Simulated assay, not measured.
Amino acid sequence: MELDDAYANAAHIPGAEGYPPRWTQQAAAFRETLSTVGRASLAIPYGDSPCQKLDLFLPEGVPNGVCVFVHGGYWLRFDNSYWSHLAAGPLARGWAVAMPSYDLCPDVTIAGITLQIARAVTVVAEQVAGPVALSGHSAGGHLVARMAVPGVLPPEVAPRLRSIVPISPMADLRPMLKTSMNAQFGLDLTAAEAESPVLMRPMDVPVTVWVGADERPAFLDQARWLAEAWGCGHVVAEGRHHFDVVDALASPDSAMVAALVD
């Protein structure tokens, strides 16, 4: 369809096919290491379906708070097992890190996934005291941005939000109507507008939109649209594309981690 290529990432990243296997290997090694020292609680259920589970990684000592990372994949693919190693940055800064999986389209609507992530954040907040920081990549960027909208998180959790960093977010879902993926999303204009953060007003919480300078123009636009609509921070990371822009989360000294926990 008209916008299929505009939103195709792998086709425009050299060696794209090698990224998922590397993510899987790095994530598995990270979970093993943290499990060995008793700092990983895996597959904690937060809902009724098998996909509604999360992994929780703990720092040494009492956590300063908890970061929640929500994965991407166009609401269609992946789960939390690909990304565990990205917890390393906030962990080294003394923060717990939770990574939820969620049901995927077409088994659930995008609006349904938003509700699942709100429930996951609520369960995490019940388990770890202190402030809550949210980051998410691509479709996950959309999902954490939705958490900033009044009424999505329960009133006992929303005031604890410390920061939100949507990374390469899908902020306006209306272009998805012009992609073949919409056969699985099942969006019409009303549903797309109802799930588009650019059309909403956020709570008073610090938001920094992050995107790689070498991403597809459509993703540069999506990030800019959200930053302009919300009047929030906007970082364009030089030399980064859609698959490696998230790597900064693994580094405790990165500006991305600082935006989350400082």
Rank of each mutant, 00 (worst) to 15 (best):
D5Y: 00
A11I: 00
G18D: 11
A27N: 05
A29F: 01
R39D: 03
Y46K: 11
C51K: 15
E60V: 15
N64A: 15
N64M: 11
V70K: 05
G72K: 08
G72N: 05
R77L: 15
D79M: 04
N80T: 10
W83F: 15
S84N: 11
L86G: 07
A88V: 00
A88C: 00
P90L: 01
P90H: 01
A92I: 04
P100W: 04
P100L: 05
S101T: 12
I113E: 12
V123R: 09
P131K: 01
G140C: 12
G141F: 05
H142T: 12
H142Y: 11
H142W: 13
A145M: 05
R146G: 06
P150K: 09
P150F: 07
P154R: 11
P155F: 10
E156A: 15
V157D: 11
S168P: 13
M176C: 08
L177S: 04
S180A: 15
E195D: 14
S196V: 02
S196H: 09
L199F: 04
R201I: 13
R201M: 12
V205Q: 00
P206N: 13
G212F: 11
E215P: 11
L220M: 06
R224I: 00
A227E: 01
E228F: 06
C232R: 11
V235E: 14
V235G: 00
L249M: 12
S254C: 12
A258S: 15
A259G: 10
